[in-house]
Amino acid sequence: MAFRLSARAGRAIAATAGLILAFDAAYAAANWTVSLTSGTTGGEAQAASVQNLTITASASPAAGNLLYPGGNGDVVASISNPNAFPVTITALQLPADTVYATGYTDSALATAATGCDSTSSTVTWNLSTATSGTSVQLTTALVVPAEAANVAGSLVVTLTDEAVMGAGAPSACEGKYFSMPALIGVTATGGAATATTSPTTDTY
């Protein structure tokens, strides 16, 4: 059986197809895991749709649980959302455990610590494996506020005990501050219809 589309339906389908293509382009841009400038690598399509999140280390609040050889400690991160809608993060994709966190002598992570670097510190993400991209589900979803007045939304969260230090960590790592290896990605939804409050501490 054959159907003839009305002119109106045809225009609707054409418009929708165009939007889908635009969305696909934005989706692909969002899946680029690394770029040198935050959220601007996707060109015009990305600028007009979903922009990537940015995660950075945060010295405040100070970690409550500190790292010791063979033990776990807190990770404090700041998540920035440049989109005009809140983003809800439900899972993290961890980097491989073969690259360690770099130790620094100061909480601003400005001066690298001798003998406690990315090849020796043994500090990694909890539950990370030799394979990059291990996905871990957060106990509670994190909601990063929307951009407002040209200021990106921001959330600082403490991931309780999600850093781990190997039992053979060198003594050069005592009392040092660590920049955790960058995450591979997040699983998130955008444009939440209802605003919710994010927890300030979380785990997975």
Binding site: N31, L36, I55, A57
Partner: peptide, 16 residues
């Protein structure tokens, strides 16, 4: 979606 853009040398968080 998954992933985000990060500046070179970006961190995944801070531990002490």
């Amino acid at each position: 979606w998954a992933g985000w853009a990060v500046a070179a040398g970006a961190s995944g968080g801070q531990a002490t």
